[in-house]
Design a protein around this nucleic acid. Structure first.
Lengths: 143, 143
DNA sequence: CTCAATGCAAAGTATTTGCAACCGA
DNA sequence: TCGGTTGCAAATACTTTGCATTGAG
């Protein structure tokens, strides 16, 4: 996908989240829409991607922007280590593979509906609460 | 349960993990075995519990010991926020409720087998890996 | 113009580590 | 005694914040 196309998608995406477009946000959004595929990034990895394409956005802004996108429902946070937070451009409900040794994060069985991980027999949420979402992480160990 | 009983369980528990008993480890183990129930602690909360019962263990040792217990298979780590790491004394496979606002963590449907959360249709782990474990976290939002 | 967004550096939070003193087998 | 364990302080890793500057509408 051409960069120009990514920028177009990025603009629509930002508008969709009711987020004002700025130079930095457009760069980050374009990178996230990048190859047209679902991406899993951390603040660091996205920051590196920015520098990698010759652009410049401060690390603090990357952090703040990822949070803003997340709060606008454009991204979904994933927690797999105490350390860093991952963000997923696919906000639909799906499970993840997590490599314990390398820290890689991929979608699990999200290529086709029949491969989707299924969670059943969910308990009723306690009084005064509702389910915000159900996270499923399949941790992998190198054999 | 009396403190003396907790100490007894703690000693067996440590031995079970092949972990040498020391004063601090016995204190921590006894607190974890405490009320005979499954506990969810963080380094901070366990450190506070130590001070609360008049004992003294350094915070660094609490961190190191939790990690040691974890590596010995006596505890299980749970990741729900980028911030802190929770440890669960119940190492069997079970789902958790997580209160997004307060940071509370409880077991979900682990009281009886028929209430257990079920995960099915798990994808085959990628070449060269095996499933270390599957984490299910039900995030709750206050209504 | 005006107010929100940005960038930097400093502060914060959670955790690990280096190393000397210590203690249990 | 000896090697593993502890405690402290310092270091590290990740993220947020304060504030002056910049920029979009």
């Amino acid at each position: 996908m051409a960069m120009i196309e990514a920028k177009r998608k990025a603009a629509l995406w930002l508008e969709n989240g009711g987020i004002r477009a700025t130079r930095q946000r457009e760069i980050l959004a374009a990178l996230l829409m990048g190859d047209g595929h679902n991406r899993h990034v951390t603040a660091e990895s996205l920051f590196d991607a920015v520098r990698g394409c010759g652009e410049r956005v401060s690390l603090a802004t990357v952090y703040n922007t990822l949070r803003a996108f997340s709060e606008a429902g454009l991204l979904r946070e994933i927690h797999v280590t105490g350390g860093k937070v991952y963000f997923d451009t696919d906000t639909t409900n799906h499970a993840h593979f997590y490599w314990e040794d390398t820290g890689e994060l991929h979608d699990a069985g999200h290529d086709a509906p029949e491969h989707e991980v299924r969670v059943s027999n969910l308990p009723t949420p306690p009084e005064g609460t509702e389910v915000s979402r159900v996270d499923v992480v399949i941790r992998l160990r190198r054999i």
